[in-house]
Simulated assay, not measured.
Amino acid sequence: MSVGEAVETEPSRRRPGRAIRFALTIGGVLLLLFGVPWWTLLASGNDWPTGVFVAGTVVFAVALAAFPFLMFLGHGRHHRDGPSVVADTMLGVVWQLFVWSIAGQLLRLVLAVAGVDAPDRSRIASAAALVVSVVLLLWGFWEARRVPRVRRVEVVMPRLGPGLDGLRLVLLTDTHYGPIERSRWSRRVTEVVNTLDADVVAHTGDIADGEVAQRLSQAAPLADIRASMARVYVTGNHEYFSGAQRWVEHMASLGWEALHNRHLVVTRDGASLVIAGVDDRTAAGSGVPGHHADHEAALEGADPALPVLLLAHQPAQIPGAVAHGVDLQISGHTHGGQMWPFHFLVRLDQPVLQGLSRHSERTQLYTSRGTGFWGPPFRIFAPSEITLLTLRTA
């Protein structure tokens, strides 16, 4: 086990006052998320009629009070779909209102400098923030619900044998089958994948938000995906909220190879490629027996002369790939940020946001923006993708 993996296996320790600090932090974040839009749209010198101000304030107050309750019902252990849809949509809406309300306040200052009188400048800023938010939310909803475009990328792997030159690898990740019924969407994704003449199809985790029994119909089309050599899968962090081992077993029942810290070898025209997979980096702390990211176990018995393709859900797992001489790691998890400007927060936790990157002389990483979406049904400046990676020799 590598040094990076040792961190993952440390048991979590409860510290006194942790729950209180967590509650205060969440409370403060929610007050900002709901308070800044309230201030911009209603209170910052707009001079609205009393009825408008009171009605708007009531709406924000009720939303603020209901949001954590709905999140608990929707994303608690029972995964109640109705509250989850409402809470997730509220989160997306308030996030955009928060972001563009801040921009609205900056516009208000510009208008003041330009000599626009009150309350006109405040009303113009409020209207601008509201209109931009609504337009982006409508566009983002369409982007989230459509079938992803195919993103085609060539990756040079110098150690790849000539017989495997041109190997077509299709990457799916972060499908997040969830409370919004998307069985038709899932079937259409399968149809697109099956037009790509894939040698290998890989799913790098976060299949669903919910138990297998809840998402059977949405996951069912995965059984119909075609690949000439292999269909492989590893767990993402969301599997550990909803029955990871049951998802591993279900994917196996659909005909996929669950690379639970293990590998297989594909061969064509005398050239071979090791395809390995490790559990998500959160697996060790999940309490699921036998689950943790273990690169050594995944590569045990593999010929060190062969090139290695590694499935690992998070880009942050790349140090383990570098340490074990992996040629190419494929990952998801980031969603490409999903809703701008969340992109910048993702980069605080992950080494890359999306695309192909190099991390050592040998090791490259491809990070997908994801096939589906998590939570808020919006994708803003972060389009989804079905990725076709064509592997090339030197």
Score class of each variant (00 low, 15 high):
10 E>N: 10
88 D>T: 02
317 Q>G: 07
374 W>V: 02
6 A>K: 12
53 F>K: 12
38 W>N: 07
301 G>L: 06
98 F>L: 15
328 L>V: 03
86 V>Q: 07
186 S>E: 15
350 Q>F: 11
380 I>V: 14
280 D>L: 09
221 P>W: 14
301 G>D: 14
94 V>D: 03
274 V>S: 00
363 T>D: 03
309 L>H: 12
2 S>W: 15
176 H>E: 06
289 P>S: 08
19 A>P: 05
181 E>N: 08
361 E>G: 04
284 A>F: 11
317 Q>P: 02
8 E>P: 00
125 A>L: 12
175 T>E: 07
308 V>S: 06
342 F>D: 13
178 G>N: 05
223 A>L: 10
378 F>V: 07
310 L>R: 09
34 F>K: 02
296 E>K: 01
364 Q>P: 00
256 W>N: 03
330 I>K: 05
226 R>G: 00
150 V>P: 00
230 A>V: 07
189 V>G: 07
77 R>W: 08
173 T>I: 09
229 M>C: 01
9 T>P: 05
45 G>W: 15
174 D>R: 04
110 V>A: 15
31 L>D: 07
58 V>K: 11
165 D>C: 01
178 G>C: 02
303 D>H: 06
24 L>D: 14
337 G>H: 10
71 M>Y: 14
157 M>F: 08
301 G>N: 09
331 S>W: 02
336 G>D: 13
146 R>F: 01
333 H>R: 11
173 T>Y: 11
272 S>V: 02
202 A>G: 04
354 Q>M: 13
46 N>Y: 07
69 F>V: 09
153 V>D: 09
41 L>C: 01
183 S>K: 08
327 D>K: 05
42 L>C: 08
307 P>C: 01
113 V>L: 14
256 W>C: 06
43 A>L: 14
354 Q>A: 15
362 R>T: 03
82 G>F: 12
371 T>F: 02
171 L>I: 07
132 V>S: 11
105 Q>S: 09
92 G>N: 11
59 V>Y: 15
102 I>G: 09
217 S>D: 15
249 E>W: 06
46 N>Q: 11
122 S>H: 12
244 A>C: 06
36 V>W: 11
150 V>L: 06
251 M>F: 11
287 G>D: 04
393 T>H: 05
248 V>M: 13
145 R>M: 08
377 P>C: 04
98 F>R: 05
289 P>D: 06
219 A>P: 04
5 E>D: 09
350 Q>S: 10
76 G>E: 12
371 T>S: 00
16 P>Y: 15
188 R>T: 01
272 S>T: 06
305 A>V: 05
292 H>R: 11
7 V>A: 05
241 F>D: 06
285 G>M: 01
232 V>K: 04
150 V>K: 00
110 V>T: 11
373 F>G: 01
172 L>R: 04
335 H>E: 14
218 Q>K: 10
123 R>V: 04
204 T>I: 13
3 V>W: 15
253 S>E: 14
188 R>I: 00
116 V>F: 10
64 L>S: 08
277 G>H: 12
